[in-house]
């Protein structure tokens, strides 16, 4: 097997706040293979976005600090190559799409100019040539009469169109890895589907890898090859996408699946089950499993000792003591 394109090992990100050190990302390891789509799911505030920003070295510092870990991209350690080398990598080899297409575009620059910017920065193209390619790319992301719209400002475009512009901006240099941070969350459901299929089509064409960050399991089910579930800064379960939906192991994953509405099936008309409680504040240092307080299956050991990742098979593992007592395994539904 070829080595992964992106290999994050034991990444740890701290934020120094007046309330103390908040560990937003606590020993996350994840790998993205060439051409693979990896989904990173979890509730708000569980460290998904911080993880993605850490890969690109975009953690605001201070207060943030990457305190441990390695992020290998091909054979380079992104945490060690320095800000200039990292800047040259961003937008060229690793790109990112953000959640809010409303706020992720500069309100006072024409969209053509913004799509052309990475080309001018990374390829040193003169403005006219860059604008020409930007027009071509806007056509590829299916913006109607793209050439006429080059000089439009973001406020003249709908949310879906703006997200297409963001995608064009992120992909125009042909990156090897695209990090998409909730790319469809702010969009209407119908537009969501269009944007997702556009992203997947572009990904297939360019054989790029993708790290898809979302809280929407539906999006993950449609697009990802593998899924990692994050909770309170840790990866609690990792599995190929079908395995995760068919046999979720970690009680948190099960909770997430139960709280997701589904069409048809036997549970029609049933109330959705939420996971009680909220993610613990990251300033607290917890002994034992971080999910114990909200876990329906928690027992004594969960509150005393921290579970280590344990595998069901080679690709599917979870961080849960229940693994040692398979009988207690909750029923998913």
């Amino acid at each position: 097997m070829s080595p992964p394109l992106l290999d994050i090992q034991d990444l740890q990100v701290d934020f120094h706040t007046p309330e103390g050190i908040a560990r937003a990302v606590d020993g996350v390891s994840l790998a993205v293979l060439k051409g693979e789509t990896v989904g990173l799911v979890g509730e708000s505030g569980c460290g998904k976005s911080v993880t993605s920003l850490a890969i690109l070295g975009l953690i605001p510092s201070p207060p943030g600090k990457i305190s441990a870990g390695r992020t290998l991209f091909e054979d380079r350690n992104l945490l060690a190559i320095g800000p200039q080398a990292l800047r040259r990598l961003r937008g060229k080899e690793i790109s990112m799409i953000f959640q809010e297409p409303m706020t992720s575009l500069n309100p006072v620059l024409p969209i053509g100019r913004q799509v052309a910017e990475p080309l001018m920065v990374h390829r040193n193209l003169p403005r006219s040539a860059a604008m020409e390619q930007a027009a071509d790319y806007l056509e590829r992301v299916k913006i109607p009469s793209a050439r006429k719209r080059l000089n439009d400002y973001p406020h003249q475009l709908s949310g879906g169109m703006r997200q297409r512009v963001m995608i064009a901006m992120a992909m125009i240099c042909g990156p090897k890895l695209l990090i998409a941070d909730e790319p469809t969350t702010a969009l209407d459901v119908t537009i969501q589907a269009q944007i997702l299929s556009l992203m997947m089509a572009l990904k297939e064409e360019s054989r790029m890898s993708m790290l898809l960050i979302t809280h929407d399991l539906g999006v993950v089910a449609q697009t990802a090859d593998r899924v990692l579930v994050m909770y309170a800064g840790e990866v609690v379960e990792a599995a190929p996408v079908t395995d995760l939906f068919d046999h979720p192991f970690h009680p948190y994953t099960q909770g997430l699946l139960r709280s997701m509405p589904r069409l048809g099936g036997h549970d029609r008309g049933r109330r959705l089950k939420e996971i009680p409680g909220t993610v613990p504040p990251s300033t607290e240092t917890l002994v034992g499993c971080k999910f114990a307080d909200r876990c329906p299956d928690a027992f004594d050991r969960c509150r005393k000792e921290k579970p280590e990742p344990a595998g069901i098979d080679r690709d599917h593992w979870a961080r849960c003591w229940l693994f040692e007592f398979p009988k207690k395994r909750g029923v998913h539904g």
């Binding site: 790109s95 992720s104 920065v121």
Partner: peptide, 8 residues
């Protein structure tokens, strides 16, 4: 942040 992520 988006501009930074683009390597600007």
């Amino acid at each position: 942040t988006a501009a930074r992520a683009g390597g600007v």
